[in-house]
Design a protein around this nucleic acid. Structure first.
Lengths: 198, 198, 198, 198
DNA sequence: AATGAATGAGTCTTCATTCAT
DNA sequence: AATGAATGAAGACTCATTCAT
């Protein structure tokens, strides 16, 4: 039983994720979710208190998926030179573009739709952003510790700077880019992150 | 007459702006707008075809307000040295924080709520973003022309990088910062923009 | 003044007639009437208590127009033989088709729209119908008196029979007919009226 | 389930029929229908997409009912003499009066209200009329074939003539008649149909 | 007499949620 | 656990009518 119900839950979350991504949360009715999942209205309410409740789970799932796809396996202390750090950043940007290409609806939903739903969802997203930012800061802190970045670098704020570039890249990707443009953005952003505009 | 109706229009747009900002577009009924404006349902529809229609006007007003507040009077070719460019960027970041402090609801509405309403509003916002990005690029292009920035700088993409820092600053501001944090973010972002993480 | 206001009234009734005929009473707003007449809402209510009120006048006008167009100048005792009666009936049918051809919207409004508006308008139309029926009966009574119709003819009910043929012709005309069809219907109906199906 | 929902549907159509007949389509709100049926607003929209949609069903039901009540079981080729044809026509007129007596609201709604609602409903009614007309023509064509009606009779147009007498009888019935008047109308119409005014 | 801005009751329709089966 | 019919509050929009100017 435990298993059956767990599967049902997953099935519903997946269905919700799917319809939310394609139509947006507000334009999606519970009836769309249950139709997609192939179950009845009543069943839905056996598993979730309300429509808002399943959103939380969809968001968590989506956020986890994005985190996995972008920072998977990268360790902040892998880099021991500035070039290696640049390479890491390049890798991340590449993964970001890959993700957007593969799952544009998901990304658009998490980034553009979800923040506007209500304060709860906004906070949930901001938490994701902060996680990302902290990760970025950790990469920089490693550089400072190892001495290949200036010691007076404000790693925390600069981490947010890096993050904002990543998000900018996502938005660029969402609106669709050619492979050439993509390379250009990646290289320019790596350059910008490492040396600024000079 | 001309005057009375023009005032009514403004009054309604202001009321709509206010309730949209505090409750969000989707959670705001026409009844909320007219209650706020102190007029009747019918009057609303004498001035706007529908709820969507007044949003356009609120958005335009808001976008204009933001553009005015942030880039007012700054000319791309005012700067003739890198330090002057940095100063310009510092000024803009300062204004951004000022704006967010004065009108947090407006900024939150335009940046977080509006993009999610529908495609039309998203496009309207993207236009704003592109305007901002182009302005940033113009500042950089001026630096390249004058020789105080590297000649191989991709001004277009780097402009988007600058812009993403500005937006990041806005988001930081939205969640509320002390004057000290604010200064720290500004300085770090100016440093990051000029020299990168190195 | 008396004159000016009388003209205004006529102007409004004409405008109302026009828009009622083309859009139907229910689908016509007071705003359509005043737009057509080129006056303001307030003015309308200076001349008519409400929308329903102007309909009465439009209906009277329309009914008079139709009566004029169809029975104008025909006197029940003009005929002194059955053939002359048949000729009269033929003339009336011809006029009916002419009227429908010239003013299809008016006819359709009076016959199809007006009866359904409310009981008052239905009664008004039924009065028209009864007037028509009585006229038809008078023609037949003349024939009985003069001896060229059977003395036991129920002129009243048979008058209604004639009338129903006229209305049938109108409906045929409303849906559009070629000149040939029109002649065929007229001749058949004259034959039917004079000799029945035999 | 199948049964429950089918019943609900019927219940709603019946309720709609009832309130449409007494108040007219335009003056009836969905709220009147659901009040009459004793269900909620939402339930209505579970069964019909909109108010217009249930009208179609009410109309179809009503039209079928009328057809059944008036032409049930009569076969065009039952008659082999003129007298038998006259008897058939008498039967139909009798049934028409019976129908109008039993269901005056229904008849009034279908004949006076429905045509004015919109073009769709007008067309639906015209189809009914044409069906009736074609039936009448078939009766006459049978007479011509069998030789008891003149061979040069225009059965099509004369059929419309018969039909118009039937409709005239309906209208007479709608305004209420005594049994004596009723007999008189029937006999006169049969006479008129068979021999004309002569 | 004319104007037209303002009114607000009334209408259709949607959809998250409940509950009897 | 599952079903899906039923609910009803809430929302957008219309339009005949009024009234201050």
């Amino acid at each position: 039983m435990r298993n059956r119900t767990a599967e049902r839950r997953v099935q519903l979350v997946r269905a919700a994720h799917h319809v939310f991504s394609s139509r947006g949360y507000r334009n999606t009715g519970v009836s769309d979710i249950v139709k997609e999942a192939g179950v009845s209205h009543g069943t839905f309410y056996n598993y979730f208190d309300n429509k808002r409740h399943i959103l939380d789970e969809v968001l968590d799932t989506g956020v986890d998926f994005i985190l996995d796809a972008v920072v998977a396996g990268d360790e902040p202390d892998d880099a021991s030179t500035a070039d290696e750090l640049a390479a890491q950043f390049r890798t991340i940007l590449t993964r970001v573009f890959d993700l957007v290409e593969r799952e544009p609806a998901l990304v658009q939903f998490i980034l553009l739709d979800a923040p506007a739903i209500d304060d709860e969802s906004l906070q949930r997203l901001l938490r994701l952003v902060r996680t990302f930012g902290a990760t970025a800061s950790a990469f920089l802190a490693n550089g400072v510790r190892r001495g290949f970045l200036q010691s007076d670098l404000d790693t925390e704020v600069a981490g947010e700077g890096l993050l904002s570039l990543i998000i900018s890249a996502i938005l660029t990707g969402v609106r669709g880019v050619t492979p050439a443009e993509r390379e250009r953005v990646i290289e320019s952003f790596v350059g910008f992150a490492m040396h600024g505009v000079r």
